[in-house]
């Protein structure tokens, strides 16, 4: 019984820890967007051709945050 309670507590603690990953992904996404903006302001003529690259970079950075969100959800509802 105590083991089950500990497991339940652990689940939620783990989910909370996994949610930190979402914040880390937010930092990553901010880096991508910020650096794109810095580059785009230096050379605005090249910016339009690189928006696809920007979105790919954003998607990759964001995917990892989504993974941690998924881990949190799995811990909360599926384990």
């Amino acid at each position: 019984m105590e083991l089950e309670a500990a497991a339940a507590i652990g689940k939620f603690i783990g989910a909370g820890l996994a949610a930190i990953g979402s914040g880390a992904a937010a930092i990553g996404v901010g880096h991508v967007a910020g650096n794109f903006l810095a580059g785009a302001l230096r050379n605005p003529s090249a910016a339009a051709s690189q928006t696809a690259t920007l979105f790919i970079g954003l998607a990759f950075a964001e995917a990892l945050g989504i993974f941690s969100f998924l881990v949190a959800l799995l811990l909360m509802f599926a384990v």
Binding site: A59, F60, E62, A63, I66, F67, F69, L70
Partner: peptide, 9 residues
């Protein structure tokens, strides 16, 4: 990652 990105978002 391709599929989980979409569903997760």
């Amino acid at each position: 990652s391709h599929s989980i990105r979409l569903a997760g978002n």
